[in-house]
Structure formats: structure tokens, C-alpha cells
Design a protein around this nucleic acid. Structure first.
Length: 411
RNA sequence: GCCAGGGUGGGGUAGUUGGUUAUCCUAGGGGACUGUGGAUCCCCCGACCCGGGUUCGAGUCUCGGCCCUGGCCCCA
């Protein structure tokens, strides 16, 4: 038997409905904040991704050559494509741009819990607003969006300037290493690295920095930094808005293009792959030949959110099953159309089942049976049977539709 | 890329020291039933992940691969 490709998944209707429900809640929150949806190609020039991250990531991407010999890649993330799109199509649009997207991405990695080779991200990008309130808005939106999914999470907010300032005399390669060690709280490795550099005194400062929840203390450690006022303002807005977050100045993020505030969200009931959100302030456009516009954005790992939510109760469609005889089928089609026009999911027997079998099947798959036999066809009424309670009554078509609609709004 | 545990009808399972046509439940389809439902009875459908090896004989032993689950690594 043919298998689906490694790391991909099939979604049956129940799961799709659950996913769409969460997806639409996210979209609705984004809409309320003014973030409008965009869509970029599923594949891009390979260069778009290597320009930013280096050739190394080719190993972790789906890369292919098309019939014209172009080197292409399935998108491993969306931010680069959105910024390319901004430069191509929207450079002169009134700033700021508030965009969001929901899209699948592809990475060639070893699958495990919460990590798949095709996965979905819901993200936002705020382009062209370079201010404390802009940074705060994106973090507040992140918080709002995670809240609406119902997932239980922790939001960590940091800023790259602290560590960068402390390490400003350190060569880039070592900086990278130290930031990773900080991110992982690998203090032994950190001390070793600093010893090798003959700067053991830095270890204490760095360790205090990543542990502190106190912004003033952090500023004392690093001394004067130009971003101080903006950071204080951003944090001030978050506090005033009552956003639940914790300060974590050791957040490294993977990439060098982040320049300011960074933040990450973690689900509290997942295993190794528990990061469900990541984002920050970055400058990327100039890499792709655009202006040096400041942007701030984040992406939510949609699949991990769904894993974290688990088998939560799903909103179920109310289903009406039409039960009829061959002679009354035309009338039944008319009745079905009335139910569908009222927004009710309505299904008819397609297998020439007998009357009793239709009911038997309806009892398994529907909430209501709408019975149209000879008697109902003659009188112009329908018999509406509530399949949960067993109650039934013969009423007008309008009354039957109204009854089913009312039960749907109930619950 | 590394480590561990797995893979028998759609789902869940049994399968003895290797031994006939692979067990049971469930789901699905058909029938009985003929205008009131999940019952009952009958019938049908449908599986040993793939390939090599050992053997008279492999679901079972062995090797390789594929896939799944969890962890490491990485994480744009």
C-alpha cells in the first residue's frame, strides 16, 4: 500500500473542523487589530532563503530544480517571502503595513512530536513602524492570539541589546556560541568559553542578566545602551495593558537579523517541541534590495497549538437527515433545499435504502430526521424527529426549519 | 545525522518451541425487516509494512530498507 510521505499527515473531517475553528479564531483576532491576510507562493527562488541564512540551510529544505533549470525551494517559513512581497508590491503603501498569513511550510527534518515536514504557521508582520508602541502592539497581539486558541502557555520577552552590548568586543562566531549557551542555560559551557577567552568576569554579568526579572538591574549590568528608553517604554506598555509575560534577556533566537525586542511562547503541556510562538523586531528588507525598513512579527506554530489543545470538545454541526420514499423524493429535495438555505447541514439517502434503514442510518449520523412519506407529501407538512430525545411532531416546513435552527443556536 | 521502542483488515486485537485456509471485537456494505431509529439473525468486504536470507515450511527466526512513536541535535 502507498504510504504518505514521511513527516506529513492526513486530516479527517473531525480534525479539519477543529483546525479550521482555531484558524478562524486566530484570523478574527488579527482582523480586529487591523492585520489583513496576505498569501505568498508555496515555493520561491532558493536564493531568497540562502541570502538570509546561508547555504547551510539547504540541507533542511525541500530544494528542487524546475524544467527551466531554476533553483527553487518549498518555503521553510513565511517571513522572508512576506518581506520580498513587500519590496516587490507594496513599498509605497502607507505605513505601517499590518499583514497576517496562515500557510503551510516545509522543512526536511526528523519528525517527532510537534515537528512535521509539512506544518502550518499563523503569523503576522508589522512593517514600517519603528517605535516602542509598535513593538508592544505586536506582543499584545501575540498574547491575544494565543489566548483565543485556549492553549496554556508562557510568554517570554527579551531584547538582544543586553547580551550584544556585553559581548560587543567578542568576535561574531564566539558571540553566537555564547548566545546559544545562554539560551540553553548551559552555564558550565559558558564559563568554559569565557575562560578560553580570558574574560571570566563576563560570566557573572551574563548569568545575572539572564536570570533577572528586573529591568533596572539589567540596565545596571550593561550600562548605558541607546535602546534603553524604547525598551522601558515597550515594557511599560505591556505592563499597563496587563499582558502576562516574563522577562528573559537570554533569548537568543536562531537568526542574526533580529535586532531588538524578541519574544517566544511555550506551551506548558508539550514535550521537547514546546515552542509555539517566536518573533521579534528585525531588519530584513535591505538584504533583498529594499529599503532598510524596520519590521516586527511573529509566527505561531499552528500544529503544536493543536497538539497542545488535544482532544478538546469540538463544536458539532447540527445535522438534519431527510428520510423519504422514492415517490416523495422530489418533495424531499424541496425540503432539503429549504433546510440548506437556512444554513443547516442537510443530508439525504443516496443508497436507495428502505424507510427503516434510512432512520437507522440517520440515528447514527444526524441530530434530526425530517420525514417525508406519502402522508406528509399529501398534506404538505413534514415530520420532524429529534433523534436525541425521540420526540417527533408533524408541522409545517417553516416550523421544522425554525425548530432545527433554534436547536443549533442552543448549543 | 544519533539513540530507544514499535509496525497483523479502516480502528482495536489473538496468534504456543516456526506447522493446514490467521483469531475475536468493532466499523463498513448487502439482506431479512416494508412508516419510526442504534436490537437480533444471515451474508459479504477486508490484514501479517517492503525486500533479501535460513527452512520442507516464516506473521513468528535473521539481515537490510521504509514508516510510526518518543528523546537527542537543530530549529528560519
Amino acid at each position: 500500500m502507498l504510504q504518505k510521505p514521511r513527516g506529513t499527515r492526513d486530516f479527517l473531517p473531525d480534525e479539519m473542523e477543529a483546525r479550521r475553528a482555531v484558524e478562524w479564531r486566530l484570523r478574527e483576532v488579527a482582523r480586529r487589530w487591523g492585520y489583513r491576510e496576505v498569501c505568498t507562493p508555496e515555493f520561491e527562488d532558493l536564493e531568497l532563503f540562502t541570502m538570509r541564512s546561508g547555504e547551510g540551510i539547504i540541507n533542511e529544505m525541500y530544494v528542487f530544480e524546475d524544467k527551466g533549470g531554476r533553483k527553487l525551494a518549498l518555503r521553510p517559513e513565511i517571513t522572508a517571502a512576506v518581506i520580498r512581497m513587500y519590496i516587490n508590491e507594496a513599498k509605497v503603501a502607507p505605513k505601517p503595513l499590518r499583514w497576517c498569513y496562515y500557510a503551510d511550510c516545509f522543512r526536511y527534518e526528523r519528525p517527532q512530536k510537534g515537528r512535521y515536514r509539512q506544518f502550518w504557521q499563523f503569523g503576522v508582520e508589522l512593517i514600517g513602524a519603528d517605535s516602542a508602541i509598535a513593538d508592544a502592539e505586536v506582543i499584545m497581539l501575540a498574547s491575544d492570539m494565543l489566548d483565543t486558541t485556549g492553549v496554556r502557555y508562557e510568554l517570554k520577552v527579551g531584547h538582544l541589546s543586553f547580551v550584544k552590548t556585553l559581548l560587543k568586543d567578542v568576535e561574531p562566531e564566539t558571540q553566537r556560541k555564547i548566545r546559544q549557551q545562554l539560551d540553553k542555560k548551559d552555564f558550565e559551557g559558558l564559563e568554559q568559553t569565557l575562560d578560553e577567552m580570558k574574560k571570566p568576569d563576563l560570566a557573572e554579568s551574563l548569568k545575572t542578566l539572564v536570570a533577572t526579572q528586573n529591568l533596572s538591574e539589567a540596565f545596571e549590568i550593561v550600562g548605558a545602551i541607546p535602546e534603553r528608553e524604547r525598551i522601558e517604554q515597550t515594557i511599560g506598555y505591556l505592563d499597563a495593558a496587563g499582558i502576562m509575560y516574563s522577562l528573559n534577556l537570554g533569548i537568543a533566537r536562531g537568526l542574526d537579523y533580529y535586532t531588538g525586542i524578541v519574544f517566544e511562547g511555550f506551551a506548558d503541556n508539550l514535550g521537547a517541541e514546546n515552542q509555539i510562538l517566536g518573533g521579534g523586531v528585525y531588519r530584513l528588507a535591505h538584504l533583498f534590495g529594499g529599503d532598510d525598513v524596520a519590521s516586527c512579527g511573529f509566527a505561531i506554530g499552528f500544529d503544536r497549538v493543536m497538539v497542545s489543545l488535544g482532544e478538546t470538545a469540538r463544536t458539532k454541526d447540527t445535522v438534519a437527515a431527510i428520510v423519504c420514499t422514492p415517490e416523495t423524493r422530489n418533495r424531499a429535495l424541496e425540503v432539503a433545499r429549504a433546510f440548506r438555505s437556512a444554513g443547516i447541514r442537510t443530508e439525504m439517502d443516496l443508497m436507495d435504502r428502505g424507510f427503516g434503514q434510512q432512520l437507522s442510518h440517520a440515528a447514527k449520523t444526524a441530530d434530526f430526521a425530517v420525514i417525508i412519506g406519502q402522508r406528509e407529501a399529501a398534506s404538505g407538512e413534514v415530520t420532524l424527529k429529534d433523534l436525541h430525545t425521540g420526540e417527533q411532531k408533524t408541522v409545517t416546513l417553516d416550523a421544522a426549519v425554525a425548530g432545527v435552527v433554534a436547536s443549533g443556536s442552543r448549543g
